[in-house]
Design a protein around this nucleic acid. Sequence first.
RNA 1: GCCGCAGUGGUGGAAUGGUAGACACGAAGGACUUAAAAUCCUUUGAACAGAAAUGUUCGUGCGGGUUCAAGUCCCGCCUGCGGUACCA
Length: 918
Amino acid sequence: MDYNFREIERKWQDYWKNHSTYKVDIDQSKPKCYVLDMFPYPSGAGLHVGHPLGYIASDIYSRYKRLCGFNVLHPMGYDSYGLPAEQYAIQTGQHPAVTTTKNINRYREQLDKIGFCYDWSREVRTCDPKYYKWTQWAFIQMFNSYYDNDCDKAKPISELVSKFEGNGTASVHAACSEELSFSASDWAGMSQEKKQSVLMNYRIAYLADTKVNFCPKLGCVLANDEISEGLSIRGGYPVEQRVMRQWSLRVSAYAQRLLDGLDRLDWTDSLKETQRNWIGRSEGTEMKFKIKDQDLDFEIFTTRADTIFGVTFMVLAPESAYVDMVTTPEQRQAVDEYLAAVKRRTERERLADRRVTGVFSGAYAINPVTGKEIPVWISDYVLSGYGTGAIMAVPAHDSRDYAFAKHFNLPIIPVIEGCDVSEQSFDAKDGVMTNSGFLNGMTVKEAIAATKVYVKEHHLGRVKVNYRLRDAIFSRQRYWGEPFPVYYKDGIPYVLDESKLPLELPEVENFLPTATGEPPLGHAKNWCTSEGYPYELNTMPGFAGSSAYFLRYMDPHNDKALVSREANDYWKNVDLYLGGTEHATGHLIYSRFWNKFLYDLGVICEDEPFKKLINQGMIQGRSNFVYRIKDTNTFVSLNLKGKYEVTPIHVDVNIVSNDVLDIEAFKNWMPDFKNAEFILEDGKYICGWAVEKMSKSMFNVVNPDVVVEKYGADTLRLYEMFLGPLEASKPWDTNGIDGVHRFLKKFWGMFYEKDELKVCDSPLTPEELKSLHKLIKKVTSDVENFSFNTSVAAFMICLNELSALKCCKKSALETLCILLAPFAPHISEELYHALGHEGTICDAQWPKYDEKYLKESNCKYAISFNGKVKQTMELPVDMDKETVEKTVISSESVAKILAGKTIRKVIVVPGKIVNIVF
RNA sequence: GCCGCAGUGGUGGAAUGGUAGACACGAAGGACUUAAAAUCCUUUGAACAGAAAUGUUCGUGCGGGUUCAAGUCCCGCCUGCGGUACCA
């Protein structure tokens, strides 16, 4: 009986489905393990062979944990709201819901063929109203909350209102957009409208004017990566900076907790570092500078307060509110011209062209420490969004200030001893202070500390921590996303009552923005409350739906809560999360924020969502090329192309095998090549190759369905793991797949001779036991460490050893089946049953290894002379150091080498090596 | 510029500081076969010597260092990939 993988895989996939083998429920008698894949966005292109890599790895881990006795939650779903579906809708007139469903079905079909152990009864789709009800619910909670810096958590906005009523802002330390100060009676005297606008300053989900990239032609705000050279990537329309009223989430309030939380996570250092950089904590000083002859001062932020004596000018960001206040009448025209010029430039242009520009405001500031007058300039190298949008410029010790000073011929005063600033600034934070009054003689570090004390004592400012992390802009002028549970009454936004959720996405005639520039929801009929108050027209961005889906899987059908207390107490958080690094500063920040917020509310029991995170590498494509001789239709084989002038042309990898071109298939591939001629080597056409991104245009896309059809799911799974380390990116090369396929055929062959099961019951020999236990040990530790490629190799070695021993004993084969079950579940199930087992192999027990079988009777020593190995020798493994030393030196061959030489030192590493130095 | 990761045969890749190249692909040779496929066996880092067993030398991007011993640790580079960037 041959290894008929098609029949076996169909049979077991049906069995698992019909028996709900992978359905899990809360089981207090077992420890839980939550293994999660980042859910996919189902695009129209379907899965290529790179997508399942992480899914296979997590599947192996899930199955392994289950065999170890864990109750494993391993769900899957779809991130199904988003831009591509909507773009497709605009182009083809198809409703995004239709194309999305179609794509999901296609994904499911492809996933099912690979034999994953997902509990599909828990599937979620972010575009399903039953799901996004809870996305909207979370938004309402954020709207109704503020962040209290005193107890470092989110609290109900009603508590803030009570504080205002009692004491005004006096006892309030809350995260806000703008520091406000008013008394209780001020508060009492405010209009409803005014009160709402004050509260908006504190809400965690808030509406505010924000600077955005807006594309008038597309009628939509675009993210930075959707723009190139000031033009939209889709369509090539101009993009401009615009201030728009947008919903935002106060993620910045959580900056410190997001940073601190990283220390407790089992993530890779590089990913944690990426998040740390993104959060960008920087500790410095906020200082007030007075404007000369005006009753006006403004604040700057600096991490280098020690250089205060080197300040020779000040710079305001063009958007700064102070620009207008400080500009003198004489400079007004020049400043206005500059501001207009800056406004014309897009963000992109500004970054591409870093020529120094700026204008003098006419005003002078007073250095609070030295009392000196210094000019105030305006330049776009200072960003309005960071710090206070104003800086003190120290050209001697900051390269940007230096370039500015050189360009406008401003003085440069070095304040660190011995540095040369004639050619460039000295940015390093070391050295001894000079030209700096009371700081002279201190090191930079001491001076920073001393300045902080000075600033505090003289009430010139305060110590301040700044974060680079910004609040997340949460509005999109799009159709295919979650509607906000928000309506407007007299221009003031109110959130819907929770009982009205979900607020379902309405039908619209078309998905383009309306003529009046409103988002597509402006086309919706009756898009208002029953009282006639209009709903918000924007929708939520892509990350809204993906920020809490891991919680929903715990209790996906609950319509009373996002997740029940019971389910959350049992499943807690994700033990293993698998996905790409591209989400490091997006999804992985937002979902940590979202989770912490829900934790503050007391809705969930863990404040970090993902305990361990692994980033699987990208699978790149391996493209093939043919070489056409210029101006002909003749193609020359790889190693002969040097003699001709050739053009390399991508050729479909599916008609190339081991870099040998299938010439007939090539002629039929495209009409152009019908009459192609070939210059062959050894009768074959050899193609060139290169590693590139896997994409249609490179003709290097390999579809998993095709591989499953030809080799089976088990082979695909094993091969994807065998390809290399999980976290490395590596090219897909179908050529090597025969190796693992052969392994499975051999495995099958150990059970069957012709149609007869040839398994016998005799006990295992010491050699067989050793081979088997070596494998158990290796695979167990490899799976725990996600080193799947080496465990596949270990299977091959073990199989070769057992087959050399002609072992076809039941107990050995049974163990092999269980070990292989996570990797190749179908064949393992089939053979496990052939051995007479009932039920499913998923309920078997992971075998334990016993060191006693692994002990070597002899141990190989390498004997080296002055570090170079010249001899090897077998000695009993438990021999002590001295005996090894004596035995080795007195042995015949070693004695020959040592003859007449004086031994200086003998080093014995137990069980490994004897080193003789002479 | 800054941060992170990597560099080992023809290819993908193995190596708790201890015989570098596991395992697999490919290639070459052989067996079986009318033939092919499939399967099995042998060889396969490089160079040199030898009829052969075998031996010698060189070899993990480059240059130094630590060590009896370095792909692995340290210092200085080079190259490639990824992230991020007027963040004061």
